[in-house]
Write a protein that binds this DNA or RNA. Structure first.
Lengths: 224, 224
DNA sequence: TCCTGTCGTGTAACTTTATACATGTGTCTC
DNA sequence: GAGACACATGTATAAAGTTACACGACAGGA
């Protein structure tokens, strides 16, 4: 049901078309909830039927139709009751970790690649989100500005605080992932130092050519 | 498709019934991938048809039927190619954050409750996972022991390392969430100190009785 | 004029996940 | 012997999400 409330939330900043929302779900809001236009358009219809939003048909240029939706008072009430619910935490589904815990079937090299990709992914993410946080902090962020319009200074500060917390938390998560993966890479190095010959026996776990490994078990014993 | 590989991964430690797997997906493996029995049983059939696993019918007691599945060499190959893929990161869907960023429509008190619940949630999670990590680190973890069976010491150390990294990372995530939410709570206190009267005007953002807020805007100006 | 890219709105088919329904056995305790 | 609870396996239905298909308008430059 969160898609519904993400839409209501976005519309509580300013009226938008389905297209606008789809962009939002790909960019700003997309850091917290993703959705594609094929999910958004039907949901907008349902929301309008339920009276939570209101659409007006406008035209761009000569013929191009555009449906602008605004949130209704009922919609606001529904959104408020959503944010007032105690937070719910969906079941864990982390494909990256599933890969990692079963990667003992592959090689140290593979895990290294995995962790390096992890670092790159979260560095990218952090580097994209940091400027957004900055622009919120110093009042340049356009969509936040819209949300602030017509509100008292105290309310404005509250809105900004919450956004900073959300983006700040996301960036911290990214930084944790980077630090974790880098430490993991060092732990891998350490492992390879301790079991030097295993690194070459990459396929050892996959097929039964564990001869090479067995051959060097004495090395393991010596080093351990 | 990760359900499929989570099942294969679990079966690569030891043969299991659908029931066993459902328990796993609720406990150990469930930290990384959740699934209910209604998803598992049909998937097991598909996996058997595809030749990735093999089921044998046994009986418990007199009549109670039990289907034990083992992973086949083809299944191992499939699993290895899964863990060898570069990690993929699913779209963001974080209902807690969606609530937070639109919580400026509710009250400081509501956000405080939200953050306190967040702290409790992740404290609980950390406290459950920490002993699991410990049991892996000192070799008491039963399912990890099964996975180690018959492997060379170097391979065993590799398996243990990966599990430690996975659980360790999860615990770090929990600790980050706790620290973040606690800092957020202090930031809320700070906000209330700066805008003292807004705290009482809880409903101000919801309805249009912003009179109370407007009345005290001079206070805001004075303090800011 | 054509072409490309953005703007704009939808539907169809499929996969995945959630929730509930449905049934029966084994084991232990009161 | 009855009842509670873990063991064990499924199906049905609906909701949510993904991917692809489908159409057309506008604006800009080549």
């Amino acid at each position: 049901m969160s898609l519904r409330y993400a839409i209501l939330g976005s519309l509580s900043s300013c009226p938008s078309s389905g297209y606008d929302l789809a962009l939002q779900f790909g960019l700003g809001l997309g850091w917290f909830w993703s959705a594609s236009h094929s999910q958004i358009y039907p949901e907008l219809k349902r929301l309008e039927e339920a009276g939570l939003i209101e659409g007006t048909l406008t035209t761009v240029g000569e013929k191009l139709e555009k449906r602008m939706y605004s949130i209704t008072p009922t919609g606001i009430d529904s959104l408020v009751s959503f944010v007032t619910d105690s937070p719910n935490y969906p079941p864990n589904r982390d494909p990256e970790r599933v890969q990692l815990i079963f990667s003992d079937l592959s090689s140290v090299e593979n895990v290294r690649r995995h962790l390096e990709a992890h670092v790159r992914h979260y560095i990218k993410r952090r580097d994209v989100e940091r400027p957004i946080l900055d622009s919120i902090a110093d009042g340049r962020h356009e969509r936040v500005q819209m949300r602030l319009a017509g509100k008292a200074p105290a309310q404005q500060a509250f809105t900004i605080l919450l956004r900073e917390l959300a983006y700040g938390g996301d960036i911290e998560r990214a930084e944790l992932e980077i630090a974790w993966a880098q430490r993991a890479l060092r732990a891998l190095d350490e492992y390879v130092r301790r079991y030097p010959l295993t690194d070459e026996g990459k396929a050892s776990a996959r097929s039964s050519d564990s001869v090479a490994v067995d051959e060097h078990e004495s090395d393991d014993a010596r080093l351990a």
